[in-house]
Design a protein around this nucleic acid. Structure first.
Lengths: 353, 353
DNA sequence: GACGAAGCGGAATGCGCTTTCCGACACTCA
DNA sequence: TGAGTGTCGGAAAGCGCATTCCGCTTCGTC
């Protein structure tokens, strides 16, 4: 038993499909009250559900909103997704989800899929990457996005602009002031008395990581502190954990490490899950936070709120960022009108001296 | 510049649309190599992207898979979503996401939306509810689902079957053995020496909570322990936190509480985030885990892996559950073939005596 | 060498809906 | 009373594609 069609409803109501369409699916013309009632009655009786596919085809607007993230199970992305989903539901859009894994190639595939689906807009979250060897993939992604935009689609990226894409009116981004906020964090840590810094960064080329790292270093310099040592590792919890183990083993961190003066090391992990992993790693190695060393993160992941020691971090309004991306996408414009994303340094116990 | 169409490609290649369709979009008939090449060339030149909407209309199969969850930012759901997304991508399906808030009415709306989109299947995750006053809403949800199924859609619910829906061949569920696992947890806790139990449950009527509670009580009985006191609270982190504060204040938990014998209380929170909230609440009240009382959860949320004290819980293969739901949905059948979901009790430090 | 089978490309139909465009009709105003 | 102005329902033309049916050519076979 296939779903009933508008034709059937019209037939049952004794009107033409055109009229049925007008009364059932918001048209500018509203048929007479008596006719309308009959159509509505018929639709109810048949359990009519409009075929959105057909509508989309006829209207050439699908009401679809694509969201591509690196990993939906990562709390960073799921928080953004929450905001995106809420906002798009309010606007009567349906969210298409793609959890890619994070490589430009996979993202390109996701964009292509959404483009085939004729999504009205695409939101692409997650750090851009500029690692050597990925230029080609980035170019492919940029090309896919440009093609989509050329066909009238809107694209909003969260965090940084898409690398290599020509600026154009329906390609925007919700900028996250990673560098500024990391700089602020550095300053606040210095003010709190920290002197000996270490950064756990992601692989070189991950824009988010790079921005936070650079901003942090600048902040240190501005606050009159020496530059931090940089350790590269994976941009996730396991990366933080592994790096911590390596550091502890090498004696680069902790009480016996080659500290500058006698300052207790302060580790800045460029995101919260790395920070948590690092704390776990240090603990595994017998080093405790904040007694032996301080650790700070970035993002202020909600699920980690009750973590001990409470994590110093930079709060990002993730759900809000998602909402803003939707607004920007649907306004076909950039996010500029809304002002910069408001982050906030939150010092907690993990960086107590 | 609208996207180019199959017609245009065909024209450029000098063939009929039928032929172009056959070479570009997997048909059973493969045109000759020379013609194929010409068509492919033309498609490339024009940057042709097939219109999935139109394809769906013509084929009457959309390749869409709807996922409805209570809250995508909740790690429980985002883990499931991860599995769903991965599996559906492998199967060349696109995921539609709806994060509802959890009421049957919102779920009904989500199902209706997906039905309108003619999704090939819908996966509905999150506890069912039987609270008084919601019968009507449940009925509406069941009706929506039945209508969708009657039209050929497949529905798979995760956790428990949809309440009130007639059993039918294309309505299945991935059952999570909540009761059995909670019972097992109870037994293991008794074996570990616990005697004085307390359950932090969700509001009455939340099936998942009810099942875990009942199973836990049964497990206690089977292990020869007395029944646990039950405290109702919200089914989330804040619920756990608030309940812990209330309990601590009332002296119902902790060293000064009216313990049975002198046994240290063991609190079973029916999910991990509640457990974490409870631990935080107890801590706030000056009670420490596991020194003053034990706490166990359920789900084994990945993000909480590094939490201290390490949380005793029941591991659920959430991503896998999501995958299974997809398989079941796409096989049009139930999940029965795959055997029961495999959970596992994991005792960690939070319940050490 | 004739005949059937098999393979090929094309014309045409329809998926379910929206949206012009039209004609019919009732009004209003001069 | 006639022309002008709205209003309202219906017919029809697509939206972009898959697919069925057709007629043609080409082989293989006896």
């Amino acid at each position: 038993m296939p779903a009933s069609t508008l034709q059937q409803v019209a037939a049952l109501a004794g009107v033409s499909p055109a009229t049925a369409s007008r009364v059932l699916n918001g048209s500018s013309r509203r048929p007479g009250p008596e006719v309308s009632e009959r159509v509505r009655q018929a639709a109810l009786e048949l359990g009519y559900v409009p075929n959105a596919q057909a509508q989309a085809l006829a209207r050439s607007s699908t009401g679809l909103l694509g969201l591509v993230v690196h990993d939906i199970s990562d709390p960073y992305f799921s928080s953004i997704a929450r905001g995106v989903q809420d906002a798009s539901r309010e606007r009567n859009k349906v969210t298409l989800l793609a959890s890619t894994g994070g490589t430009p190639l996979e993202e390109q595939a996701a964009v292509a899929t959404f483009a085939a689906r004729r999504a009205d807009a695409i939101i692409i979250a997650g750090t851009r990457t500029k690692a050597p060897g990925q230029e080609e993939d980035n170019r492919l992604l940029a090309k896919e996005i440009e093609r989509y935009c050329a066909n009238g689609g809107r694209v909003v990226s969260i965090g940084q602009p898409v690398v290599g894409a020509e600026p154009r009116k329906n390609l925007g981004s919700v900028r996250v002031p990673n560098a500024e906020l990391a700089g602020l964090l550095a300053r606040r840590l210095v003010e709190a008395g920290h002197r000996n810094f270490l950064v756990l960064a992601g692989p070189e080329g991950l824009t988010t990581s790079d921005e936070r790292l650079a901003g942090f270093q600048e902040g240190l310099a501005a606050a009159g502190a020496g530059p931090a040592q940089v350790h590269r590792t994976a941009f996730n919890r396991d990366g933080g954990y592994a790096a911590a183990l390596r550091l502890a083993e090498a004696g680069d961190a902790g009480k016996d490490g080659p500290t500058r003066g006698d300052a207790r090391p302060c580790v800045f992990a460029v995101n919260d899950v790395m920070a948590i992993g690092a704390i776990a790693g240090f603990r595994q190695a017998g080093l405790y936070v904040p007694e032996d060393l301080a650790v700070a993160g970035f993002d202020d992941i909600e699920t980690l709120r009750d973590f001990l020691p409470a994590l110093s971090t930079v709060r990002l309004p993730l759900a809000d960022i998602g909402r803003r991306a939707v607004e920007a996408a649907l306004n076909g414009a950039d996010d500029d009108g809304a002002g910069p994303v408001h982050g906030e340094v939150v010092l907690r116990r993990s960086t107590d001296l």
